[in-house]
């Protein structure tokens, strides 16, 4: 709680938190703000923005309300981004913990696996995975997580390696704590914070990957996403530029909000430490 207060105390943290809270509210209350299916036809096609009160951002080439699309797209972007980042973090932390704590051949094998995933471009991997497994929401989450878990795993392993030699771990071993107890009570809580500080970057990257995938047409066709809206807007780029501009601005705002919050948290942690 104090960390939250300290984060908001920094300028970046306050702006980032404000942007993100607003976006989360929009995502949660999307059906209240813009009731009905955003894929339904709401007015004449290609209505320019700011011309009709009921359709403030205009309509796309099929006459669908752009504002409803952007609002409902917030829900998709945030949920997919957060879920993929959470999956990547959880998997990465488990692998890193296992590699660092076991050592020896397990460590060696797991780290080669991490290497393999780090040299393959994550986006290509996600592209291949979605093309193989279909484009439902949970497949996209797994596809994005596939390309993002290696970083946290590597950092987690490094953390575990440095912590397992500390004196308090040795002390726990001396008083007869089992391996599970040492891992979950002594090592995990102390190794986790630096790894968690990666989460802002990973969430932002996951949201960007999701929209890039849906921009290339690899998303659930029954769900509105900012990427698919931009990709549809691209076909009428010459006559209706606003169709690609607004979803892009929404994406940009989201990512900036996440980065700012991340910077705020980093600053707050830095201030909390004595001597820095």
């Amino acid at each position: 709680m104090t960390l939250l207060r300290q984060t908001i105390g920094t300028g970046e943290g306050a702006i980032g938190a404000a942007i993100l809270s607003l976006l989360i509210l929009i995502a949660v209350f999307a059906s209240v703000l813009c009731p009905g299916d955003p894929l339904n036809i709401a007015g004449p096609p290609l209505t320019p923005p700011f011309t009709q009160g009921s359709l403030p951002l205009g309509t796309d080439s099929l006459g669908r309300d752009l504002l409803a699309g952007v609002v409902h797209g917030t829900r998709t972007s945030l949920s997919v981004g957060l879920a993929a980042a959470a999956a990547a973090m959880a998997f990465g932390v488990c692998i890193g913990l296992a590699a660092g704590f076991s050592g020896g051949i397990v460590d060696e094998a797991l780290m080669r696996l991490v290497d393999a995933f780090q040299i393959v471009p994550g986006f290509l991997l996600a592209l291949a995975f979605v093309s193989v497994a279909g484009s439902s929401a949970h497949v996209i989450v797994i596809a994005i997580a596939l390309g993002a878990w290696a970083g946290p795993a590597r950092l987690m392993r490094a953390q575990v390696l440095s912590i397992r030699e500390r004196e308090y771990v040795a002390a726990a071993r001396v008083i007869g704590a089992g391996p599970a107890e040492i891992v979950f009570k002594e090592i995990l809580p102390n190794a986790l914070p630096p790894v968690l500080s990666l989460s802002a970057i990973i969430v932002a990257a996951a949201i960007l990957t999701e929209s890039a995938l849906s921009f290339l047409g690899l998303s659930d066709p029954n769900v509105v996403t900012w990427g698919s809206m931009m990709s549809e807007g691209r076909n009428v780029l010459r006559s209706a530029t606003w169709l690609s501009i607004f979803p892009g601005l929404a994406l940009l705002t989201t990512v900036i909000g996440i980065y700012l919050l991340g910077e705020g948290v980093t600053k707050a942690i830095g201030r909390g430490r004595p001597g820095s």
Binding site: L208, S211, A212, F215, M230, G233, R234, L237, S244, I245, G248, L251, L252, V255
Partner: peptide, 8 residues
């Protein structure tokens, strides 16, 4: 996002 920048 790079693809949006590309479009713009």
């Amino acid at each position: 996002p790079s693809f949006w920048l590309g479009l713009v």
